[in-house]
């Protein structure tokens, strides 16, 4: 009877802990970003493809000289993605349309709940209160999980050094500007003010207001408001986002919710299961022993006379 109670208690205790973990996991899924987080609203209807943002980023982040000059339009012939040598690139879409080409700036979108941060097992990434997702190269082991995890293909890897692994991506000019409340270099240089810097919460209102005021100019969607749990970079577009190379298949849940339940189980499995199952094993073994011993005893007793 005592054993049965012990087993019951173990089961109930284990289940409670497991459930508790899961609930906690779900609760953090409603995180909507830091209230004072900054962001950038990209209005693709304003961009003229001058690539000044690329040049400004290159100089601000002290990146190597580009392969070709920043006023060379030939780069638009191919879709580019951010690399370790260019944290931001401008791509051209809708070239054949009579309404003219649409340019789209690509860089790290600085998610509210970054997948890179989730995937990193050495905690090299930090989401700062200012909204930037920054990276600590000192602890990075170069596994490149973040590059696989990122839904926007933002991180680039510096393959030049085998001994010092460095992932490179846009950090929203955190060290040199954002920390002091100043806008990133790309925003400051943009001649068309296609990039608007401000509090993320304000930018969302601003974006919807632009759509309301000039509904013919935009499709009624702010990309990044909800995608993967929300991003600090937000986009407005004149045509469907799928036509501008955006991934429109992304869920509104942050990437972490795909693994949160599972990861919430890990501590429980690691801490409770060994104790629980060793307990059960020992009990069963004892029981077997006891019964066996008893049987032998009785057998012996039987054989004695």
């Amino acid at each position: 009877m005592k054993r049965r109670n012990f087993l019951k208690a173990c089961l109930i205790g284990g289940t409670t802990i497991a459930l508790g973990k899961t609930n906690k996991g779900y609760a953090s899924g409603s995180f909507e970003g830091y209230p004072e987080a900054m962001g950038v609203l990209v209005d693709t209807t304003r961009c003229i493809g001058c690539r000044s943002c690329e040049a400004a980023c290159n100089k601000e982040q002290k990146l190597p000289e580009p392969d070709t000059s920043f006023d060379d339009p030939s780069v638009f012939e191919h879709d580019r993605r951010p690399t370790a040598k260019a944290y931001t690139v401008v791509n051209r879409y809708q070239k054949e349309q009579p309404s003219g080409p649409v340019y789209r700036k690509v860089q790290c979108n600085h998610c509210n709940e970054p997948a890179c941060l989730t995937s990193c097992f050495v905690n090299a990434y930090t989401k700062t209160q200012e909204g930037a997702v920054i990276y600590n190269s000192k602890v990075c082991v170069g596994c490149r999980n973040c590059m696989i995890a990122c839904p926007f293909n933002a991180p680039g890897y510096d393959y030049d050094s085998a001994t010092n692994p460095v992932v490179k991506k846009c950090i929203l000019c955190y060290d040199t500007r954002l920390k002091y409340g100043r806008p990133p270099a790309c925003v400051e240089i943009c001649p068309q003010e296609a990039l608007t810097f401000g509090h993320r919460a304000d930018l969302i209102k601003l974006a919807h207001e632009r759509i309301r005021a000039t509904p013919d100019r935009y499709v009624d969607h702010v990309y990044g408001e909800k995608e993967v749990g929300g991003t600090s970079w937000l986009y407005l577009a004149p045509v469907g986002f799928d036509k501008l190379g955006f991934d429109t298949t992304l869920s509104n849940d942050p990437i972490i919710s795909n693994v949160k339940d599972f990861l919430g189980m890990v501590p429980m499995v690691l801490s409770i299961w060994p104790a629980l199952f060793s307990g059960i094993h020992l009990l069963c073994k004892n029981q077997e022993h006891g019964e066996h011993g008893h049987d032998t005893d009785s057998n012996q007793e039987d054989t004695k006379p």
């Binding site: 000044s52 290159n58 000289e65 392969d67 070709t68 000059s69 920043f70 060379d72 030939s74 580019r80």
Partner: peptide, 16 residues
């Protein structure tokens, strides 16, 4: 210098 104009005409990486 800011726009790296001296590198104009150099082949972009993807072309190589």
């Amino acid at each position: 210098a800011f726009y790296s104009t001296n590198r104009k005409g150099a082949k972009p990486a993807h072309a190589e």
